[in-house]
Amino acid sequence: MFTRKWQPLRWVRYVALAPLLLLLNGCATHSIWWIFDPHGVGAKASFDYMMIDVAVMLGIVGLTAIMIVWFMWRYHKGKNRGTYDGKWAHSTTIEVFVWGIPIVAVGFLSWVVAINGSFAVNPYNPTVITRHLKPHGDPIEVDVIATDWQWLFIYPQYHMAVANELVVPAHTPIFFKLTSTAVTTDFFVPQLLGMIDVMPGMRTKDALESDSIGRYQGVAANYCGAGTSWMLFKTRVVSKSEFASWVHHAQQSTGNLTVAGFNRFAEPYININNKVEYFSQVQKGLFNQVILEVMQGRKWPLPMFMTENMVGYLKKQAAEHRA
């Protein structure tokens, strides 16, 4: 029954291994490997923990894989490489190692990575940022409101706000408070800070500090409806002086954000043209007001059959938002 006959397409087995070649290319470039190229204090810490974890696990998994391949080769029937013992099915020594190795590895990872890491990058109080809070001067606060499907960043200290662009000074801790008007999504800037859920009627927190001036991509990392893919925001880390002049520039803009203005802003809108908007006046306590209203049942419902024909929907949207 197991005679070796012609095997159709034997060569395809090599195709299965071909993608491994991609890994060679993997380390050559950077910058597109956002997770491997962190520029925020939190993202860097996460990256270090990842490397420890991968090193330990790869050690075990890699050796196991090699052992399996070796057994597969050595005990191939008919090749007479290893001796056959059809009764052997127990060995206390091996069992001790079989349980021992994973227990030790998990114990090590639990302490070094799971427990320490959870405190180090705890979004509400990341010790990697907060432990040297003083020397870097005053932290900046940013209130983040996600709508369907835009991001609004309010800088309460400067009484201004900006939609769909985040600008922060380098070497300065930034503390975010976040909420959403309609549905849940995730706030995420892959090279700077990890994800945090943004939920309607609730407030979450996160923190960011970066020493690298540059432009980074921010995304809505959780599916939140038709506009998710376009719910992007550029994040710029700039020098302190540049930040000051940016704030000044924003404060000169004509936009102003009252509660009524915000209610209009929060209507469903797919930000397909990367629209960035500045607001020089922001109603005091807008962030808390939004949370409160949502808790009391305020909704911005979606039209039926939202985007079955997207091009048509976008035309309608453009007409409605001719602002």
Partner: peptide, 27 residues
């Protein structure tokens, strides 16, 4: 997190046991 990693222990045991089933076998 720790509870999740605990699952890795018996899972690891299973993999080792399959490997040692092949050890001294006739594959």
């Amino acid at each position: 997190s720790v509870a999740t990693m605990l699952v890795g222990i018996p899972t690891g045991v299973k993999v080792f046991n399959w490997a040692f089933t092949m050890y001294r076998g006739r594959l």
